Simulated scan of single mutants.
Amino acid sequence: MVNFNGELLFKENVSLTTDNRGFKYGDGIFETIKVINKKIIFWEDHYFRLMASMRMLRMKIPMEFTLEFLQEEILKTIAVSDTGSSYRVRLNVFRKDGGFYTPTTNEVSYLIDVSLDSFTTKETYEIDVFKDFYNYSGLLSTIKTNNRLINTLASIYAKENDLDNCVLVNERKGAVEVTNGNLFILKGFTVKTPSLSEGCIKGIVRAKVIEILNKNKEYTIEETTISPFEIQKADEVFITNAIMGIQPVTKYKKKKFKTDLGKKLHASLRVLQIAGN
Rank of each mutant, 00 (worst) to 15 (best):
E107D: 15
A79T: 14
I112M: 06
I239W: 03
I143N: 04
F229W: 09
K254Y: 15
W43H: 09
I74C: 05
L265W: 05
Y252A: 10
N216W: 12
K39Q: 14
T250Y: 10
V169P: 01
L57V: 12
T240D: 08
N214Y: 05
M56H: 15
K253G: 07
T190L: 11
T18W: 10
F133I: 03
K251M: 14
M63Y: 06
R21A: 12
R206P: 04
E177R: 09
V176F: 11
L272N: 12
E73Y: 09
E7N: 12
I40E: 00
K256N: 14
E73H: 10
L265K: 06
E230G: 01
M63C: 00
D27K: 10
M54N: 05
S227P: 02
D164M: 04
D235C: 06
R49A: 09
F238Y: 09
F130I: 06
I226L: 10
P103T: 07
L168W: 06
T121W: 00
F100Q: 01
L261P: 02
E223F: 03
Y47P: 07
Q247A: 05
G26H: 14
N146I: 02
K60V: 11
F184E: 06
L9T: 07
T224Y: 08
S137I: 01
T152K: 03
F238H: 05
N180D: 05
V2A: 07
I243E: 04
K215M: 12
F229Q: 11
V2R: 06
I243H: 01
E218S: 13
I231W: 07
K60C: 11
V209T: 02
H46C: 00
Y47D: 09
I212G: 10
R21D: 13
Y157M: 02
G6S: 08
